Amino acid sequence: MKSAKILSFLVLIITCLGCEIQNEVKTIRLGHGLDVSHSVHKAMVKMGEDLLERSGGKLKLEIYPSQQLGTERECLELLQIGSLDMTKVSVGVLENFAPKMKVLGLPFLFRDRQHSFNVLDGPIGEQLLNEGEQYWLKGLGYYDAGSRSFYTMNKPIEKPEDLVGEKIRVMESATAVNMVKALGGSPTPISWGELYTSLQQGVVDGAENNPPSFYLSRHYEVCKYYSLDEHTVLPDVLLIGTYVWNKLNAQEQEWLHASVKESVKYQRVLWAEAEEEALREVQKAGVEVIRPDKSLFAEKVKGIYEGYKDDTEIYPLIKQIQETK
């Protein structure tokens, strides 16, 4: 009788422990470098709310914005060792970890914004998201980061020759470095968090980025010329470390994928609104917005494409992207 009671008690304990494990909330930590007012951060907040609801409270997203956990490169490295679960980085930084991603950083690769969406949302985009898995990085989706253009302190950039002698901040991206060199400028890799001070101190003469980043970073306070040559369409990529991804069961992975997809749709709407607001506000602050002849810049970077003709991995991708409707 006593043995039966002990056995019943043990069964009860095991059952209760099973219930606790089943009801356990899994927290996914997401670190990124953007301000909380940025459309990407807002989309992440929505993703967290959606994920919590979709999973019935079993999956929770914890977001650390504004480089609290490090630069984009540092966050990628934290993902690789399992110290961070998710992050968002620019394709320009990701190419150092997933080499085929550099194709998206090529200047004047896309005909227009819709062409870029068709590529990223299709099989080519899906293929590229999986490129980092051998480096413990799994891509989940692309956030819109618009087109990147030059902004400078001392003179407007109306044609490529105006970049000669100008020190231009670029990301830690060989593709970005080669592009600025091809256009006649002097590329200078500097982390995003250090750029405002570097501009103030004259370490660089300018930089290149999209309108919302130019506005939200307050770089317009020191750079009064913004030249919309729109040389690259570099998306942001949302990633999860494979260490964490493989610990999620199939249902949890499905919940996360669905929440990411919804947040991408939401962010693209916010982004379009943010671009309009950014251009309006920087002009109010005294920034001269220049719309140069883009063909002059496109002509200057043709040599970059020639350099990939013998690359059996990148060149076929370039052709596939150009042929995508």
Rank of each mutant, 00 (worst) to 15 (best):
S83G: 10
K261E: 15
L76S: 08
V25M: 05
D310V: 09
S186N: 14
P212M: 03
E172T: 11
K88C: 14
V269N: 06
W136K: 10
E133I: 13
K325S: 13
R29C: 06
M179N: 02
Q201N: 12
K100E: 14
G105L: 03
G241P: 02
L34K: 02
L10T: 15
E72F: 04
A285Q: 15
G31L: 03
V237S: 00
Y196C: 02
L52T: 11
V233P: 00
D310F: 10
Y215A: 01
N154P: 04
A258G: 04
V282S: 08
I304E: 05
Q267K: 08
W271R: 07
L79F: 09
P65S: 06
V177L: 08
R268C: 03
P235C: 00
S259V: 06
S83D: 12
L228S: 01
C19S: 11
M47V: 09
Y315R: 02
I314R: 05
F297C: 04
I240T: 01
L59R: 00
L7D: 12
R54H: 11
L120G: 03
I6F: 15
D293H: 05
Y135G: 05
S147I: 08
I168M: 05
P156L: 07
G139S: 10
I13H: 10
S149Y: 12
P156V: 10
V177I: 14
Q80A: 13
K167S: 09
Q134D: 14
G141F: 09
K58S: 11
Y220A: 00
L238S: 03
I81W: 02
G125Q: 02
